[in-house]
Computed example of a mutant assay.
Amino acid sequence: MKTIKEKHSVLMRWTHWVNFPLLSIMIWSGMLIYWSNDVYTISLFGHTYFKFFPEWFNKALDIPAHLAKGMAFHFLFMWFFALNGLVYVAYTIISGSWRELVPHRKSFKEAWLVLLHDLHIRKMLPPQNKYNAAQRIAYTAIVLMGLGSLVTGLAIYKPVQFATITWLCGGYHASRIIHFILTIGYVIFFLIHIIQVILAGWKNFWSVISGFEVVNTPKTLNISKDDEQPKES
């Protein structure tokens, strides 16, 4: 028998889908800023052996180094990104759904089993709840990464006004490096997340849109009290 079960709340779905275009704009505008001062290279004795974004990469995307435009978009949408993240975190705390998302003591061990299962090395399905161990770690990590991006972003945005934050991040240059590494982390998370969605199938994807999932429940037999009692011969 098929029944409809609520899987994701409205607020969770809204913050999830709003975050995708916000992060895309933040990454795009951040790349405009970065291309205006492409400083991350591997050099030795005055010779550059590796440039993180080589010239062919910049030309392939056909996005010029527009520093002012990149900063305008980046510093505007960062507030929407921060607000969306704040709403999400507040909701998980108030609703108590953080218990389903935060990793527990056995999560890292179980996450390894999830990886082995996804790679078809291990046949047995690891422990499953609403979110498996790997999802718990990934979703918690992305929230912490968002916080890290906000803090380091403020350190880069106003290094004098937020001098204490900049100092805690290790200085302006260190803040920029951490901010850059976190951006690479978002891209990797996106790619893995999309692959996982494809592997999970349309049913799982649709539940994040509608909030509901159709599940198969076993039929129950209704036995009357008369049937439970032995009949006299």
Score class of each variant (00 low, 15 high):
Thr92His: 13
Thr92Phe: 01
Thr92Glu: 06
Thr92Lys: 08
Thr92Leu: 08
Ile93Val: 10
Ile93Trp: 01
Ile93Met: 05
Ile94Trp: 03
Ile94Leu: 05
Ser95Lys: 00
Ser95His: 05
Ser95Val: 01
Gly96Cys: 06
Gly96Leu: 07
Ser97Thr: 04
Trp98Asp: 00
Trp98Ala: 00
Trp98Leu: 02
Trp98Gly: 00
Arg99Leu: 07
Glu100Cys: 04
Glu100Gln: 06
Glu100Trp: 05
Glu100Ala: 00
Leu101Asp: 03
Leu101Ile: 13
Leu101Thr: 06
Leu101Gln: 10
Val102Cys: 05
Pro103Lys: 13
Pro103Ala: 03
His104Tyr: 08
His104Asp: 13
His104Ser: 12
Arg105Pro: 11
Arg105Met: 10
Lys106Ser: 09
Lys106Val: 08
Lys106Glu: 03
Ser107Trp: 08
Phe108Leu: 14
Phe108Cys: 10
Lys109Asp: 03
Glu110Arg: 03
Glu110Asp: 13
Glu110Ile: 08
Glu110Cys: 00
Ala111Thr: 10
Ala111Pro: 05
Ala111His: 05
Ala111Gln: 06
Trp112Arg: 10
Leu113Asp: 15
Leu113Phe: 06
Val114Lys: 14
Val114Gly: 07
Leu115Val: 04
Leu115Trp: 10
Leu115Ile: 12
Leu116Met: 11
Leu116Ala: 14
Leu116Val: 07
His117Tyr: 15
Asp118Ser: 15
Asp118Arg: 13
Asp118Lys: 11
Asp118His: 12
Leu119His: 07
His120Glu: 12
His120Leu: 14
Ile121Lys: 11
Arg122Lys: 14
Arg122Pro: 07
Lys123Ser: 15
Met124Cys: 14
Met124Glu: 15
Met124Lys: 14
